[in-house]
Design a protein around this nucleic acid. Sequence first.
DNA 1: ATTATTGTCAATGTAGTGTTGACAATGAGA
DNA 2: TCTCATTGTCAACACTACATTGACAATAAT
Lengths: 295, 295
Amino acid sequence: MDTLDGLKTVVAVVETNSFTAASDRLGISKALVSKYVGEVENQLGIRLFNRTTRQLALTDSGRRYYEEAIILLEQFSAMVDNVTGEQTAPRGLLRISAPVTFGEMRLAPLLPKFIALYPDLTIELVLTNGAIDMLEEGIDVRLRIGGVDDSNMIARHLTNFPLVLSASPNYAKQHGLPTTPEQLGEHHCIIDSNFRIGKQWPFISPKGRAETINVQSGLAVNSPQAAREVAIADGGIAMTPNFIVADALADGRLLRVVPEYTTLEFGLFAIYPHRKYVAKKVRCFIDFVLDQFSK
Amino acid sequence: MDTLDGLKTVVAVVETNSFTAASDRLGISKALVSKYVGEVENQLGIRLFNRTTRQLALTDSGRRYYEEAIILLEQFSAMVDNVTGEQTAPRGLLRISAPVTFGEMRLAPLLPKFIALYPDLTIELVLTNGAIDMLEEGIDVRLRIGGVDDSNMIARHLTNFPLVLSASPNYAKQHGLPTTPEQLGEHHCIIDSNFRIGKQWPFISPKGRAETINVQSGLAVNSPQAAREVAIADGGIAMTPNFIVADALADGRLLRVVPEYTTLEFGLFAIYPHRKYVAKKVRCFIDFVLDQFSK
DNA sequence: ATTATTGTCAATGTAGTGTTGACAATGAGA
DNA sequence: TCTCATTGTCAACACTACATTGACAATAAT
């Protein structure tokens, strides 16, 4: 066993609270995780975990070991980065998390470019709209709508995405289209339940006056992609991020609704751990998405 | 190759400026030293050393690597010590340096007791009266007469050794013995060239008056042990540390000369690197010799 | 009560290990 | 200038360790 592999294995078990999950994270068999943890314990002459077949508890020594191990591993990575400087490209596995639709439509298409820039990196893209425990899942950097209120994390603002309203031409023919947000009350509206606004849709008039409209909705879905498909299928007026419907607006499958009014803008943030040393691979990725999204 | 073994190997090569000396220090073949250094360089993608068959030069990257590697290795050791706490005894190799005679007569006899206290330690005792480069020779702690004026080192005072004058009964019968230091000028004196005083022997009278006597000498030797043997063999009056001749004084082979007068006292110091973290094995040894020499 | 899952263990085919001896290159000494 | 000794590197090799796989006892979930 490599000494640092032993450290990493213990760290993974602590953070995932599971030998099995640790083996998944590390890409080794769970038998090897078990073996490595045992070897570290033997070398130190102490128990790091108390465990039965289905329970795992960290000992005090294990807690101390973990706290110092993560510092050591970080410093080892920092040393390698400092020593190699600009001479070498970032390498290893970079685990990125992003919201599903954004990841599919905006981030995934960019990744070949990123990989071309850094061929020694391996990317693992984890798309989810649910909550994420970055530590437990070993996520290096997470793109998300909105920042986080966590002092252990840095929230780096990348860009803003405006929300827009749209409906199909056929819906327009059948129901007409509202000329002011107030008229939305008489229309079928499609709710994206990922957003907290629900049925209270906020607007700013061309004159700058803010107002909130209660809309009717027979459909709520936690996927902007699905919301767009419903709108295209004459299902009503959808409020989605601009980029979701950009192509459908361009080719006429959807029409803008009350385009002179603006509604919300959501900020896109990169979230990563607040540490003295930020791994080169993380820094390179953040620089890349900053560059890509600032165009 | 274990990652930390790679670090240690590079550190040993830097500190000894030699693959061969590094292999001696580490107890592995020089081929393996060469292989490990090569593996570290491959993993980093940089050169640490520029080398021909007979020349070795550290690159800038190598210098940075070395500086960070020693910190990492120290912190790893500190982590192990901190995590295991008092649960485990110190282990590994402890390299101690001491002056030859002192080492033979006073330190070596104590080491079985130390080893009995800490059976997981391996001791390497390096006896020399010459200058020592602790870094190059990988010495953990050095006992020496007198401190050092080096801000990178700690000089921990252990005890004082007084110098005493002695001669054999047969010499006394043949030449008489001086009753004051002034009379030493008429006697054969044996010079220990380890001391800087040479032929200018300093004394303090019973009344506290300091004086320096020019003595005659037909013999100088850089071994207090040899000086004592010459004195026992009727060769003259020797000035040696008390402990050198304690047994011969006790059993009558040597007689004290001008015992009412005092001369120099030399301080015995433990010298070890000034670091935030002092290895447990070094701390245990220093505590041990403090305890042994304060009796 | 049954099923699924966890962490551990031993068997196993496979890969890597570290030493040895040889070598080219170079510095020291005569 | 020639010879010898030493250094760092390389490849061969017998040996050892490796990490996975499958099985298992124990336990939680259904």
